[in-house]
């Protein structure tokens, strides 16, 4: 285990689309091995936050450091920093013209210039961990949604990232496929990966998180360990939000 502590640091992040302010003076610090779950109402800026972290969005002010390197859109270092960040999106974003194996090995070979045989060997090992080794020569269109998302996770992992970002990776899945993907993520968390997860699956958030961040309208409203957050939320906004997940007959 490395003793490197802070993998991700965000200071006074300010992000707007034109007049529309999305993130206001946002701070966050993530230590190596931590699993952070971000929840909050739709449109509160969760996806935007993740996209800022790996430089897919420009920011108006503030600083983002990954592994002590500043993330600056348009800088040359960005390509290097992105290798430290694995990201899985909600939409199935595999490359449709490549097989599963080609999808996984493309970036390690072209970006990190690693040897083909070694990368393929590792890819197959990772695939078998998620139970998909037999799909290595399939094309994405031949896979179910859940299988695609697990391949996308493996693809990100194969770059040996320092931190993994997940943006509602199960939101577009049929219910029976949600479980297999979340299980994969749980195993990843147990293996010590640093993870930043956006999800609407509350029981999953409770099980996996070291810390819950509750966002509303671009601001960090509440931050707490999962048990505390879900059993006794401190703020009214968090209480209200959690109530939207409960059903009762009036």
């Amino acid at each position: 285990m490395s003793i490197k502590n802070e993998i991700l640091k965000i200071e006074h992040l300010h992000k707007a689309f034109g007049e529309n302010v999305i993130l206001k003076d946002f701070d966050l610090s993530v230590k190596s091995g931590e699993v952070i779950v971000i929840i909050g109402p739709s449109g509160c800026g969760k996806s935007t936050l993740l996209r800022c972290i790996n430089g897919l969005e420009d920011i108006q002010s503030g600083k983002i450091y990954v592994d002590e390197q500043p993330v600056i859109q348009g800088s040359k270092d960005l390509y290097e920093i992105r290798q430290k960040i694995g990201m899985v999106f909600q939409s199935y974003d595999l490359f449709p013209h490549m097989t599963v194996l080609q999808n996984i090995t493309l970036a390690p070979m072209k970006v990190q210039k690693r040897k083909k045989e070694k990368v393929e060997k590792e890819a197959i090992e990772l695939l078998s961990r998620v139970g998909l080794a037999d799909k290595k020569d399939s094309f994405p269109r031949q896979l179910s949604g859940g299988q695609k998302q697990r391949v996308a996770i493996v693809r990100a992992l194969c770059m040996h990232p320092e931190i993994m970002l997940f943006d509602e990776v199960t939101a577009a899945l049929d219910p029976e496929m949600v479980h297999e993907v979340l299980q994969t993520m749980l195993e990843l968390a147990q293996s010590g990966k640093t993870m930043l997860i956006v999800t609407h699956e509350m029981s999953f958030a409770r099980a996996i998180a070291d810390r819950i961040l509750f966002l509303d309208e671009g601001e960090l409203i509440e931050e707490a360990p999962p048990e505390e957050f879900f059993t006794s939320p401190k703020t009214d906004r968090a209480k209200k939000f959690l109530q939207t997940f409960e059903y009762s007959k009036k």
Binding site: L56, L106, V111, R155
Partner: peptide
Amino acid sequence: HQYESAEALGL
């Protein structure tokens, strides 16, 4: 998202 997932991989 094809462009974005490629860039997110460091390409």
